[in-house]
Design a protein around this nucleic acid. Sequence first.
DNA 1: GACATGAATGGAACGATGTTCCAATAGAAT
DNA 2: ATTCTATTGGAACATCGTTCCATTCATGTC
Lengths: 232, 232
Amino acid sequence: MSRRGMATRTRTKTHRTERRTDALSRERIIAAAIELLDSGGENALTVRALAAHLATGSGAIYWHVADKGELLAAATDAVIARAMGGIVSGAKPREAIRAVARGVFDAIDVHPWVGAQLFREPWRPAMLEIIESVGGRLQALGVPQAAQFDSASALVHYILGVAGQNAANARSHVAGMDRSTFLASVAAQWEELDPAKYPFVRQMAPQLRDHDDRAQFLAGVDLILAGIKTVR
Amino acid sequence: MSRRGMATRTRTKTHRTERRTDALSRERIIAAAIELLDSGGENALTVRALAAHLATGSGAIYWHVADKGELLAAATDAVIARAMGGIVSGAKPREAIRAVARGVFDAIDVHPWVGAQLFREPWRPAMLEIIESVGGRLQALGVPQAAQFDSASALVHYILGVAGQNAANARSHVAGMDRSTFLASVAAQWEELDPAKYPFVRQMAPQLRDHDDRAQFLAGVDLILAGIKTVR
DNA sequence: GACATGAATGGAACGATGTTCCAATAGAAT
DNA sequence: ATTCTATTGGAACATCGTTCCATTCATGTC
């Protein structure tokens, strides 16, 4: 736990949020962490780099934040909350669910490290936000009580799986390649597989080469929604 | 790359596979790594612990293996290949797909670190095995060409998502709690959420507390298969 | 059997990381 | 002005993955 977390939060009447303009704060630290993660990928976030970016020392950071894990979790929660907040909820439930899925996908597209973190620590505010956004609309869709839990679970786990895939792809991109050359190289590997052992994968190679991640992701959501409709 | 990988593999005529009974080998190293991972979780696999377990030094290990990443990937491939090999392929396609999914689930249940690794590095032999096993059966199911890629993608990403969830849960278990007390604590948190903001999650809390992971996983597979059937 | 050669070994050493510790400072309260 | 506490910055520690290298082992050659 951060030392600040243990200290009393109560202040005397003259409570001012900022002591000076350049004061360190949990919020500034999280914002700086997001900057580092966005620009340099997952292992660009080191305590030393963070301290340098904020012109301070590691000790000061650990006063506001318990450890690196909490920092990553907080950064992820912030990104997901922002993404979920932007969803317009007026539409029909089916469209709303697609909008939520699209929102998560796009957020992870911009911040790939979020995908890895969602995966590493589910059972966190960020995931709660997603479950609620999806599940609430399932109820509105008229999915019977008994099927709601499994249906929401299927959708959320699917979203989680795609999240992981995207994060992994982004790691490959950091290593130099851009998306299309990377996919082309994987497709090339697929095409050189033994036709006797991997007939299906070989057939999929050309489609892998020039498919649209986002469209395929949404196609999967539609597939699951179609499945859910059958038990309705 | 491991130094051994660079050295010539060719031997003179009298090629003996083993120089002495206690000789180190890539296979023995991978087996030892699996042991460490199974008994102590993901961060029990350190090069030092591995060296101690094998009664050797780190340098000897790096002669056979390029780096820790390759070691983890190889260990994962070994576990998944074993799991996929055990699938009886005689049954009807639908049952076969369920069997494959069940196989992956059970393998990750026994070796939770596999879930994390599958997630960290898709596009690897282990994932190929899964894609082929699932996709091949989709063709046998009669899914039209145009829908095969998206259908396989949906199933595999769903499996991947559950894999991640299981790995995350296992990490919590290493931290002391067993499954039921862990789920109970999460459910308790869910029940204390603001009913105005999280009505759905709150309602799901009791079902979370005593649901069966494996059954829910298979329910999700059935849901997706039902969705796939609608486009057939 | 002695020698030469290259494969294989084991452990010391390096650089980077997360975290802790603590002397020094800044701000608020009296 | 003084005291007290919150906060800071950076040195120090433990641990990790990896590299380096002197040494040992097994084998083919004479």
